[in-house]
């Protein structure tokens, strides 16, 4: 029996912000939920995030940001992923993101925004369902 390919997730911290508690907790929890998780560490430029996503051939990119720079830093990531042909990759985000920005980010192609207090099993379930629907 062929072993099922694990879902591959890149957890990334774009921008200069060092608040990595959430990103690290999510990364570990998704790993515990059976996914293959790559964590970039802090201070990633959009180009670095795109490069890691391509290199690691991930199914999911999770962006964590708390500095308020999401409207500036997310678009080049989304564009870069498209340019590299990663049109199928599921992009989700979390951190401190005001409600009014959520539709803007969703329109950009970010599938879900998980704000503070979101249960992690809900995030894992969302990723599992979305990736399954694509396959």
């Amino acid at each position: 029996m062929a072993e099922e390919r694990k879902i591959r997730v890149l957890v990334a911290k774009p921008g200069l912000d060092g608040h990595d508690r959430g990103a690290k907790v999510i990364a570990r929890a998704l790993r515990d939920a059976g996914m293959e998780v790559i964590y970039t560490g802090i201070r990633q430029t959009p180009e670095m995030v795109v490069k890691s996503a391509v290199q690691e051939d991930v199914d999911v990119v999770g962006l964590s940001i708390l500095s308020g720079a999401h409207l500036e830093l997310f678009p080049p990531i989304i564009d870069g992923l498209r340019e590299k042909g990663m049109t199928e990759v599921l992009v989700v985000a979390g951190g401190i993101i005001p409600d009014e920005d959520i539709p803007i980010l969703q329109q950009m192609g970010i599938k879900a925004i998980f704000g503070p207090g979101t249960p992690i099993d809900k995030i894992a379930e969302f990723i599992n369902n979305e990736v399954a629907a694509k396959n």
């Binding site: 308020g68 720079a69 500036e72």
Partner: peptide, 10 residues
């Protein structure tokens, strides 16, 4: 370049 988007934010 690395400052773009972060100026005056936090």
């Amino acid at each position: 370049p690395l400052a773009q988007g972060e100026i005056g934010k936090v």
